[in-house]
Design a protein around this nucleic acid. Structure first.
Lengths: 358, 358
DNA sequence: CTGAAAGCGCTTACAG
DNA sequence: CTGAAAGCGCTTACAG
């Protein structure tokens, strides 16, 4: 009586709350305890919790009252074992610490949480072997479904996993019974960026590419070429520099561009990070933005807005990509055909581009 | 016989692999199947899996062979229910998409994964209520322990949770039987930054603060003041501008600084993000860095290196903070007293600071 | 050293 | 509409 595993510094319980208090002290409240308190069977409590069957109003009320009073929280682990659901969704991401994926994961988290699910984030780092390991870990954790953000796994491998559980893939084109995919229109976005530069009067526009192994990178390059073509401008392969979506890559690309003494008045970098690296490269050589060279990025992540000068870029809502991926998964789980819409990419003009003066 | 819940389109199994194949087709291999295959009881398999008791070499071998052959992977969900462990660790973070937390989470993930644990990341957004919800969700998921990165929860609340399960807290000073905390020496780091500026000959050094509600922000301000004092420089409260660790806050602070026509030749911003915002504010008003004003940040996150000009800052290894937090948790779980060491903060001189010319 | 048995907290056919 | 019962895949005292 005197001191059992004393609850941490909670004020002495008023008699009225005693029942609830002592329940807490004996470890978590279980569904069985709720059933007993409400005078019904565990099965009935379970049904009410899951909305699985209609229950008489009286019992419904009694059970709900007991749940409130005892502050019952169902144990997801037990639910997982018994029901085959864990209320958890695996998310295969690439680099959890990148600003891009960070945004997306945040969106996934918010949307999933609202539905009572929890995301399990596992990184793949663009390595097929790691992604496979991540997927295996997720399978063994019995997640209810998996969201895959891009990655390097072959489509066939993803399709195979999708036979085991619902899957939504972002940034690829795949489909199947339990499989849904969607992505941004990278090509249209890249066209927008290029076209903006063209409208400013630029005709010699360099392009800092992404890794051609990734679909989005290829699409962005295609968009660049299409805009050029549409405007009747010649495509000059010498103006396309390889890159890898990193700042370091952008810096390198600019260095090469400058060393080769190519003539150009604008640069379109395949993503913001590369653009920011490019900006530093130009700064180092006293090439002014936008006076000497105009610069456009892609993604509109946080750093773009505070770059010097603030970066003109193409906005795609990465956060929204996350929420939509989660929403699609939830729909798949309910057996509904997913219907997600992503906003179209938009040009965000800032201070890194300007009209050429003749 | 003809069509039960037909497994989706797996190719006809070659006879030799039939056993393993069919096991796979009937759903995941269970511990019971391994026991049957090895001719032992489930209990024995469990013991071997967990190293809980010594087992005769013969059975050990038989079981291990069966595990290999059937490709058995223990079900963590069932383990969690039965054994009270889930091999999962909750991580209460603030903003999963910030470059700072992103780095830390990456470190946590890598370290935990190596030990067979999986992190459950939940965001608190510096809101006490959200953090409490996050912790509750984690508790209900039966995580084996929790890592808390800073946050706004009162120490007392954390201590209460730590009675329920092992906890490691980063960025506070707490201790207890299942509770361990550690953090960077923010004060020393801030002194380093300020001292660097002083050594460059600056005497009027403005400070862009963080939210004083956070311990690290207070410590950084203290470090700034101490360095001033140590150098015999007067502390001028007018030179301390409120901030909030964001770029927007840094920009605002600089605007105010400039509008008040205060005299200063250097700025120390409490973190890199604020410094980057400050840089934009200076750029907007044609104040050149470092010619007119020197600027120092804090953290050395990725953007610092590619700022224009590259930002002098104080490096603290946030990634390492993550790995060490995970390591401490693992030690706690083994019943060992955690012993983690963090590298001391280091000044990273780049191009945003320079000696004042007389 | 090793099994049989009970149990972790739920869910879900199976019968009314 | 509602219970009793079995079971999800493991672990762990309890007995040898």
């Amino acid at each position: 009586m005197k001191s059992r595993s004393s609850p941490p510094a909670s004020p002495p319980a008023a008699p009225a709350r005693e029942a609830a208090q002592s329940a807490r002290d004996d470890g978590p409240v279980t569904l069985g305890m709720v059933a007993a308190a409400a005078g019904v069977s565990p099965a009935t409590v379970s049904r009410i919790l899951n909305g699985t069957a209609s229950v008489s109003a009286a019992k419904q009320a009694a059970v709900e009252e007991a749940i409130q009073r005892l502050r019952f929280i169902p144990n997801p682990v037990a639910r997982g074992l018994a029901g085959g659901r864990t209320l958890s969704i695996g998310v295969v991401t690439q680099t959890i610490s990148s600003p891009f994926y960070g945004e997306a994961l945040h969106g996934v988290e918010v949307e999933l949480q609202a539905a009572g699910y929890i995301p399990l984030f596992v990184s793949g780092h663009w390595l097929e072997a790691e992604e496979r390991k991540a997927l295996e870990a997720l399978v063994s954790r019995r997640v209810d479904g998996v969201i895959v953000l891009a990655g390097s796994l072959p489509n066939a491998a993803l399709k195979a996993y999708a036979k085991t559980m619902p899957m939504v893939v972002v940034g690829r084109s795949l489909s199947g019974p339990q499989l849904f995919s969607f992505g941004f229109d990278n090509r249209a976005g890249a066209s927008l960026a290029t076209q903006h530069l063209i409208e400013c009067g630029h005709t010699r526009i360099a392009f800092i590419a992404g890794d051609p192994a990734h679909e989005d990178a290829r699409e962005r390059e295609l968009g660049y070429r299409m805009a050029l073509e549409r405007a009747g401008l010649a495509f000059d392969p010498a103006l396309v520099m390889p890159g890898d979506y990193t700042e370091a890559g952008g810096l390198l690309a600019v260095n090469r561009l400058l060393e080769q003494r190519l003539s150009f008045t604008a640069i379109f970098a395949a993503n913001d990070q590369a653009a920011i690296g490019a900006a530093l490269g130009l700064y180092r050589r006293n090439v002014r933005i936008p006076d000497d060279v105009s610069l456009v990025g892609f993604d509109d992540l946080a750093p773009a807005k505070f770059a010097i000068p603030p970066l003109t870029t193409v906005r795609q809502s990465v956060y929204e990509m996350g929420t939509q991926a989660a929403r699609a998964m939830l729909q798949l789980l309910r057996g509904q055909p997913p219907a997600v819409t992503l906003p179209r990419p938009q040009l965000v003009p800032r201070e890194s581009t300007r009209r050429v003066l003749r």
